[in-house]
Amino acid sequence: MRVMVMVKATSDSEAGTMPGTELLAAMGNFNEELVKAGVMLAGEGLHPSATGKRVRFSGSQRTVIDGPFTETKELVAGFWLWQVKSMEEAVEWVRRCPNPMIGDSEIEIRPLFEADDFGAELTPELRAQEERLRAGAEGAANRPR
């Protein structure tokens, strides 16, 4: 199963406070363990929401909203994409993670939808399209921009 592991934002991460060398080294070592175990598919930190934008959809209308966004506890400061055998395995990996923030922090784990989750609504044609898109996206990720 694939899961997204989200590091929740804090007032420090939203203020742009960067981690020190010790935390960067600890997280680098943890990420190396994930890669060696074949768990980590991707992972990145995010800039504070002040540098971001949201697009609100209402029917055919699109409204662009500039950051920063309120409710820091609802924001994401970074993420991993993992391939694990179970949610329990994901939880065990997160328990081994260094605290990703200077103070208290929280990490959320959520499973990704897989093609089979959509049942008969995902027709063979739509499944083939999904597979083509996934292959194209993987190829694009390996090309220089």
Rank of each mutant, 00 (worst) to 15 (best):
V3K: 05
M4T: 04
M4Q: 09
V7I: 14
A9W: 04
A9L: 07
T10I: 00
T10S: 03
S11W: 05
S13P: 01
E14M: 13
A15K: 06
A15H: 03
G16R: 02
G16A: 03
G16D: 03
T17V: 15
P19I: 00
T21P: 13
T21N: 13
T21C: 11
T21F: 15
T21R: 14
E22Y: 02
E22T: 02
L24W: 03
L24K: 04
M27L: 04
M27G: 01
G28V: 00
E33A: 09
V35I: 14
A37P: 05
A37M: 10
V39S: 09
V39E: 11
V39N: 09
V39G: 11
M40Y: 06
A42R: 01
A42W: 01
A42H: 02
G43I: 00
G43R: 03
G43Y: 08
G45I: 00
G45Y: 08
G45F: 07
L46G: 06
L46R: 07
H47Q: 14
H47K: 14
A50Y: 02
T51K: 13
T51H: 12
G52K: 10
K53Q: 11
R54Q: 11
R54V: 04
V55S: 13
R56T: 14
F57Y: 15
G59H: 07
G59L: 06
G59P: 01
S60M: 13
Q61T: 05
V64D: 10
D66Q: 10
G67L: 04
P68L: 12
P68F: 11
T70G: 15
T70R: 15
E71V: 06
E71Q: 14
T72A: 12
E74A: 11
L75T: 08
L75E: 08
G78E: 07
F79T: 02
W80I: 05
W82L: 13
Q83Y: 13
K85A: 15
K85H: 12
K85T: 12
S86V: 01
S86M: 04
S86A: 09
M87R: 10
E89T: 04
V91R: 11
W93Q: 02
C97M: 15
P98F: 07
P100L: 03
M101A: 15
G103H: 07
G103R: 06
S105Q: 01
I109Y: 08
I109Q: 04
R110N: 09
P111K: 07
E114S: 09
A115E: 10
F118M: 10
F118N: 04
A120W: 07
A120K: 12
P124C: 11
E125C: 07
